[in-house]
Computed example of a mutant assay.
Amino acid sequence: MSDVHALSGAYALDAVTDIERQQFERHLTGCEICTEEVASLREAVSELSALTAEEPPPELRGSVLAAIGETRQLPPRVGSPSRPARRTPRRLLVAAAAAAVVVGGVGVGVTRPWQDETGSGQVVSLADRVLRADDAQRVTQEFEDGAKATVVRSPSLGRAVLVTSDMPPAPKGHSYVVWLQQGDDMVNAGSMARSPDQTVLLEGDASTASAAGVTVETDPDAEDATTDELVALFPF
């Protein structure tokens, strides 16, 4: 990436690849500006977790995406050696965090923060809530090469999570796509990153799904599976 400073927002929201994470963490050791911004953004996300979750109106996602497309992210200005200049006012950091929560459904793996119901103040993701749910249902498949994949569904939360271990990458130019079986239709629930160990929050209403399946596709956003061969099937 030509401007490593621009990774600060994605890094704070854990929306970077492993390579970007390593690159940015090396950068953080010598950049006080980015260190300060990451801390501020994480604090803003923590504050957002105390808000009451409500279903956003349909037009909100489109307006947020349009605003993001018109906003240019600039590299930090260099301040005096004794006090580095702050790049982004705090109110903009809060807005950026709010946008990330609203647009989280665009990419699988971007988590939404929630307040822990135990009252401890710990911020937990929706994926964690599914995994911890009292009604969590787990279906696991183990493969001959030692890889393992588990789908966890919480009917009360209406969501499902895919957890993989030692999963080999999809063939070059392809992606693992996860589907939810809704009646006679398989609905795209998101794609998996090229990482052997990951936790993926699936999109869609898992409470009405009868199964989850994984196929290999050239288009991660495909509306229909192009192959009849399932890599894995998880009946609920």
Rank of each mutant, 00 (worst) to 15 (best):
D3Q: 12
A6S: 13
S8I: 10
A12R: 00
A12F: 01
L13H: 06
D18P: 08
E20D: 06
R21G: 07
R26G: 09
L28N: 05
G30K: 12
I33P: 02
T35M: 12
E37M: 09
A39D: 11
A39N: 07
E43D: 12
A44H: 04
S46T: 11
T52D: 14
E55P: 09
L60V: 03
G62C: 11
S63A: 15
S63D: 13
V64L: 06
V64H: 06
A67T: 08
I68E: 15
E70S: 14
T71A: 14
Q73F: 15
P76M: 08
P76Y: 12
S80H: 14
S80Y: 11
S82W: 13
R83N: 11
R83I: 12
R86W: 08
R90N: 08
L92E: 15
L92M: 14
L92K: 13
V94F: 05
A97P: 04
V103D: 09
G107W: 12
W114E: 14
T118W: 05
S120D: 04
S120E: 06
Q122N: 13
L126V: 14
Q141P: 02
E142M: 08
E144A: 15
G146D: 05
K148F: 06
K148W: 07
V152G: 01
R153T: 15
R153P: 04
S156T: 12
S156W: 00
G158D: 03
L162T: 00
T164E: 05
S165H: 13
D166G: 04
K172M: 11
H174D: 11
Y176C: 00
Y176P: 04
V177I: 03
L180P: 01
Q181V: 09
G183M: 02
D184Q: 13
D185P: 01
M186Q: 13
M192P: 04
M192L: 15
R194I: 09
D197R: 06
Q198C: 00
L202P: 00
E203H: 08
D205N: 14
V216K: 00
E217W: 05
P220G: 00
D221R: 10
A222S: 07
E223K: 14
A225F: 12
T226H: 13
L230P: 03
L233A: 10
L233C: 07
F236G: 11
